[in-house]
């Protein structure tokens, strides 16, 4: 079965958010199919975070609607909706007064799972995000940034959501750690068949992860397509310029590498 055959899991229709006169997200429509990973890509202030938060109603839309697996999210109590959607925050947001284990267990506790089931789930998740089981008793402050974000991902996955929203989750990490976490995440989402909206401003990250990329600028979704669609058929000047950046960077790297070989050969 190809991705295109699968049902639509997240559907946003005319999604709009205003603050006073400022239109921060402007009539955004987007469909994400089950198991698909869509990256929202755009510069800082383009409205990515606001869009993501409107999906799980951390921010209420001014207009438009979101449906999840065919159900209008406005019809669900917000806390129940959020327990069904994993959310990884830009600033991680682990609770400092709880241990790693308690942080991971928080949503299952809210859902009233039995303690044995929660304990087993925490073990499973720590293994999944490649953390040492003995981290369980530690407090978040005692962990490195990379480890903290692994805990953040584990917490978001705890209640076995089918949908994950991630807001620049690896933005603050060094490039090596970031790449390792990207690979971990790709493995996890394939294993769990997650439907994912992933926000980033990093072109390389978008190209690495995305099934499809949505380019945002000034609150509008300019174009949605596969990485190769965007590279070969950019819909407007902004998208073209954006897609040119990796090429320009590659050229710089090639030039430097060429100079280095030339030097070595001389």
């Amino acid at each position: 079965m190809t991705a295109a055959d699968r049902p639509v899991m997240i559907e946003a229709e005319g999604l709009t958010r205003r603050y006073g006169d400022a239109v921060v997200v402007d009539h955004l429509s987007l469909r994400v199919r089950a198991g698909e990973l869509v990256v929202l890509l755009g510069g800082s202030g383009s409205g990515k975070t606001t869009t993501l938060k409107m999906i799980n109603r951390l921010i209420e839309p001014t207009a438009g609607l979101v449906s999840l697996d065919g159900v209008d999210t406005a019809d669900l109590p917000p806390h129940e909706l959020r327990r069904r959607i994993g959310y990884v925050f830009q600033r991680i947001g682990l609770f400092p007064h709880m241990t790693v284990g308690e942080n991971v267990a928080v949503t299952p506790v809210l859902l009233g799972w039995a303690p044995e089931r929660i304990a087993a789930r925490v073990d499973e998740l720590l293994a999944l995000v490649e953390l040492d089981p003995e981290m369980r008793e530690r407090h978040p402050q005692e962990l490195s940034g990379g480890q903290q974000q692994r805990v953040g991902v584990a917490r978001a996955l705890a209640s076995e959501p089918r949908v994950m929203l991630l807001d620049e989750p690896f933005g603050a990490l060094d490039p090596v750690t970031r790449e390792r976490l990207q690979q971990s995440f790709l493995r996890i989402r394939a294993a769990l068949d997650l439907t994912t909206v992933f926000v980033t401003h990093d072109m390389t990250e978008a190209l690495t992860l995305a099934d499809r990329i949505g380019v945002m600028h000034d609150g509008r979704l300019l174009q949605v397509g596969t990485p190769s669609d965007l590279l070969t058929r950019p819909a407007d000047r902004y998208v073209r310029r954006l897609m040119d950046t990796p090429r320009r960077q590659a050229a710089v790297i090639d030039a430097l590498a060429g100079a280095a070989t030339a030097e070595a050969g001389a």
Binding site: L58, R82, R83, F89, I92, F95, T107, L110
Partner: peptide, 25 residues
Amino acid sequence: PALTEAARGVGMTPRQQLLMVELPL
């Protein structure tokens, strides 16, 4: 505020947010 938002994000009701996050902190 990042923590109160995280509390909402993981699915706490306003009451749970108060009792489990804000008051302990």
